[in-house]
């Protein structure tokens, strides 16, 4: 079994049909169509302002789309708050700037949503949180505050915090862009491990090594459109569109 098909089932997790979005007059997403199956790992790249972050932020309704359909686990995202809350419980998100809660300890950060959203008993939530903190290799920091950790550690806590909700899908919005170079690897290692365990992942990143190692598909976006969608080897070795070639030459040049 090749890397591309490893652990991928036929069950559709996310479906975008002709999704369009505007910021005022600015047409930021244009006719986006995308299907993600359970266990698939998708890397989204593209120049800044291409709409890639906006697209994955639409998947848990941090941004609202104005036309088209988005289905997550067969639930359509509409203005219905119940649907939105159901989907947010199933979809974990990791941000560029970590967004940990600074007034809570690492452990409290991880337990908060399980306790208040899933109504897990505190003891059980703490046990689960410790399990995930061990997985991201920082159980010894559980009682510190986020401000006392390095960027890489904070981002790993953020990943653990999302995993504590036991999500079906994980969204990563440029998880390594705000990190110092020596900390990128520790975060990517955690993400690779997660991918190998079969988590469905959508990841906006420019870490091309990561894309080659774990992605089933790479999506290139520019000007609010999906320009090219291909398996990673084809994408890097044999890009089809001119814009992809230009982009790749720019980011691989240095």
């Amino acid at each position: 079994m090749s890397t591309e098909t490893m652990g991928v089932s036929d069950e559709v997790k996310i479906e975008l049909k002709d999704v369009n979005k505007w910021y005022g007059e600015f047409h930021v997403l244009k006719d986006i169509n995308l299907t993600v199956k359970k266990g698939e790992r998708i890397v989204i790249c593209g120049p800044s302002g291409s709409g890639k972050s906006t697209m994955i932020r639409c998947l848990n309704r941090l941004e609202e789309h104005q036309a088209g359909q988005i289905l997550v686990s067969n639930t359509e995202l509409t203005n219905d708050l119940k649907n939105i809350e159901t989907i947010r419980r199933e979809v974990g998100m990791v941000f560029q700037h970590f967004n940990l809660f600074p007034h809570l300890t690492v452990l409290e950060n991880c337990c908060l949503a399980p306790i208040w959203v899933r109504k897990t008993p505190r003891k059980e939530a703490e046990a689960t949180a410790m399990k995930y903190l061990e997985r991201v290799k920082i159980p010894d920091q559980a009682f510190k505050y986020p401000g006392q950790l390095s960027g890489g550690q904070q981002q790993r806590v953020a990943i653990a915090r999302s995993l504590c909700m036991n999500p079906e899908v994980m969204l990563f919005d440029e998880p390594t862009s705000a990190l110092d170079p020596e900390m990128i690897k520790e975060v990517l290692d955690v993400m690779i491990e997660l991918a190998q365990e079969g988590m469905t992942m959508l990841c906006v990143t420019h870490e091309m090594g990561f894309a080659k190692t774990v992605a089933n598909r790479v999506i290139f976006m520019d000007g609010g459109q999906i320009i090219e969608e291909n398996d990673p080897h084809e994408f890097f070795d044999n890009p089809q569109s001119e814009r992809t070639k230009l982009f790749l030459s720019q980011i691989l040049a240095h």
């Binding site: 809350e85 998100m93 700037h97 940990l100």
Partner: peptide, 17 residues
Amino acid sequence: PKGQYEAAMALGLNYWK
């Protein structure tokens, strides 16, 4: 920061929580 609101929402917390 806006990120705090977004992180809270992304975890499924409703407005009052």
